[in-house]
Amino acid sequence: MRHARTTATSLVLLVLATVTMTGCSGGPTSSTTVTRPRLERSLERTYANRYVALSKVTGHRGVTAKSLDAHAVCDKGGPTVDDAGPGGDWICQVAYTDPNVPNPDGSAKVEMNVHSNDCYTAAGSSKLVGPLNIVDTHGHQVVNPAFEFDGCFNPSGSGTPDGTLIIVNAVPLPGAPVAKPALTLPTGLVTPDGRGRVPLLLTCGDAPTSCSGTIDVTVQGEAASKVTYDVPSGGTKTLRAQLTRGQARDGGIITLTLHERTPPPAPAPT
């Protein structure tokens, strides 16, 4: 009996030692199977398939995974965190084409909770896919197939990024005054040219003279370039923003921060 107790104690110690060792050996530098390209390629397929299921429920005809042509770009925990490893702080942007539901933002935000077993739970943007419970074409209440869904990806699938670039509207800091700018910035999918420059279609609204200023271009939170613009009032202009070679190759979420030189239009007299 004493022998058995000693063995049991040594087993418990062995287990504790294993846990401690694994806890110490693992760090943020250890190679993870959860990478941005694997997550993006999997989400594109899963999102498209779930969106097709949603279109069937809402009676939108002719929507297929091919017609949607979904492209995804993901980011983990903002610019200060490495885009790899499991966690509930993955944010992805999915750009796709559905003529039934116009999307002025150019892409849909998807919040992801990625687990260490290479599976994830994704929550779609209710602005674009609707609430959890929706009514189908027969008038029955059903669960929205694109509101929340699960997926798993191949841990040994290709880890090479495919260079997808999506422009996303900059989110204003909480509490900052929000003035509608005179210049309208592009959103959605963009393709760089051979020299790593992406086109920016700028539209100037009701400015007294012209819209002018600078735009800070960042990719995945890292500065790319600064673009100076001067667009006549009521006109459009396409400028090119230079990306670094790595940014053009790996792709990512492009954020444009506007610094307007033009004074905003004076409020209408009351």
């Binding site: 049991a8 087993l11 287990v15 846990v19 694994t22 050996s25 693992g26 943020p28 260490s116």
Partner: peptide
């Protein structure tokens, strides 16, 4: 021990597997 330890070890292995940063193990 013969009956309980494999179950306990299984649970510990799952706990370790669910941690981030232990991909090699």
């Amino acid at each position: 021990v013969g009956i309980a330890a494999p179950v306990a070890l299984g649970l510990v292995m799952q706990l370790v597997g669910a941690l981030g940063g232990v991909e090699l193990i």
